[in-house]
Design a protein around this nucleic acid. Structure first.
Lengths: 178, 178
DNA sequence: TTGACTGTACCGTACGTTCGGTATAAGACG
DNA sequence: CGTCTTATACCGAACGTACGGTACAGTCAA
């Protein structure tokens, strides 16, 4: 099996236990792979695994969440389509964002540049959609940041309050939320 | 020295390294206390320390951040005063929220009920201010959740993007952000 | 026969926690 | 006054366990 086959389990473990809490024993158990095999697929160890998950996530964002932004239709419709994709990816709020998870790791420096870049590309993609609609670059950037803030805020509150779905529902109906 | 004297260092360590990453060695070094002494002040170990920090935070919220909400003045002014307090507490976004940090711990179950309750009290306090202004209970609750989401979202983005202050600036100017 | 893959044993280190103390100071008692 | 007790503050050393990671001798399909 290719290393990509284990990405979903890795993602789930990092989400559930955090980076420091996702121990090799747990990873070994969840994947069914011995430590030797894990190091065969991921020579760089745990850090390598996290980066592999980020690779997949980066690709997923491009191919799933951001693709509606580049399609035709009203801005509102396109944002909604993105919201729907995110709603599914985060399972209605029951799953946290890996970016936020990795930024709480004790070795966050190993990921901070990468995660910042990924987040910025999300902000930029949303901003671009606004810009095409006639918003100024600055206002567009702000709209992109607002959207990202709302997404992350909803995810945190879902985690904390465990009342899950209805918070992210607003994301699905973004940008008309109130 | 009383155990309360060590709360600021503990808060800082949990924020910086996460719960799992804040090891007893680091705590010992930062506080200047031997590991054994830490168990004198916090018999319940690391979990005890985290709860002690939450105690302080709970008190701080009541005495600092939420007190403007109960004062006189326009709703807008009161929300702004709260925003200013939060802006200071999170050092303009350079510091994450401990609630979110603890929810990424591998032993998050030890804190999840407590953290949910603390977050709900924040939401409720903001909602109450809106309700007094004539908003319906449901709309008020929604406003409280929106504010909490915005706070948490701004904190996450500040952590991830490390562009810090200007995101939380919007919080300071809440609710007129755009 | 090669090369991808794996089970097992093992490494040094660090973890959270506990034990068995010592130092100091404040009361209590005769 | 002296000393005896008690409580608080603190610590060095060690506990058993688990950590992330490595070495190596295989196995097995192509």
């Amino acid at each position: 099996m290719a290393r990509e086959a284990y990405i979903p389990q890795l993602l789930q473990l990092f989400r559930q236990y955090g980076y420091d809490g996702a121990t090799l024993s747990k990873i070994s158990e969840a994947t069914g792979l011995g430590k030797a095999s894990l190091y065969h697929y991921f020579p760089g160890g745990k850090e390598d695994m996290a980066h592999a998950v980020l690779n997949t996530l980066e690709h997923w964002f491009d191919a799933q969440a951001l693709v509606p932004l580049r399609q035709t239709g009203s801005l509102r419709e396109r944002l909604r389509a993105m919201g729907q994709k995110l709603y599914e990816a985060y399972e209605g709020g029951s799953q946290p964002c890996l970016y936020a998870i990795l930024m709480t790791a004790s070795t966050r420096d190993a990921f901070s540049d990468r995660v910042a870049q990924l987040m910025m590309s999300l902000v930029a993609a949303i901003a671009k959609a606004f810009e095409e609609e006639g918003y100024t670059p600055e206002a567009s950037r702000r709209k992109g940041e607002d959207a990202a803030m709302m997404i992350q805020g909803a995810l945190v509150l879902s985690q904390v309050l465990r009342t899950v779905a209805y918070l992210l529902e607003r994301l699905r109906n973004y940008p008309k939320s109130s």
